[in-house]
Amino acid sequence: MKHLPKHLQPRYRYLAVGIESWPDATVDRRGFQRALWDETRALLGDPGSAAVDPSVLQFDREGSVGRAIVRVRRGTVDRARAALACIDAIDGDPVGLRVRGASGTVRACEEKYLGGPPEPSEERTVVYQRQERTATARSPRVDVRQGDAFLGVTEFDCETPNRDAEIGENHESDRD
């Protein structure tokens, strides 16, 4: 179809969204898009969803952090924010979401709010509550494995792992 004259073309705003999860989460673009549609519909209803018309333009993820650009209709940024805030989990994996900023173009959005690539994370062994544990670290954030789940800590909470002598055998973590 012939494209619309300029004054009738839809106007958009672009939201830079930060997505955080536990390191074992399998959050992908498809899942995020679905969660966004579901939540927009649940919170704003069908008319609201049509008005906001959110769509995920870019998505990348490295370890437990991801970033996305979400396109919404101009004038609906706050409604979109509200819907984004209500995304609690993506495909069953809990996520933390934050709108880093909104721009009128994809490029401005990338340059102003996404910056460089996400910090890489590394596997390491840390001593938390006097127990050696495997963890995924993105300094200073550390996700400590605890059975099937994780615990969000920071480097300030951990001791240096090479003081083996100090690790008490009968010290059990409160959580285990």
């Binding site: 955080e20 999860s21 536990w22 919170l43 704003l44 706050d78 409604r79 924010r81 509200a82 984004l84 805030a85 209500c86 609690d88 809990p94 996520v95 933390g96 979401l97 934050r98 709108v99 969000g152």
Partner: peptide, 16 residues
């Protein structure tokens, strides 16, 4: 830490 939401997000949700 995953359950925190930004001030502007909560504000927008409140309005809604």
């Amino acid at each position: 830490h995953l359950q925190l939401r930004g001030v502007r997000e909560l504000r927008a949700l409140g309005e809604e």
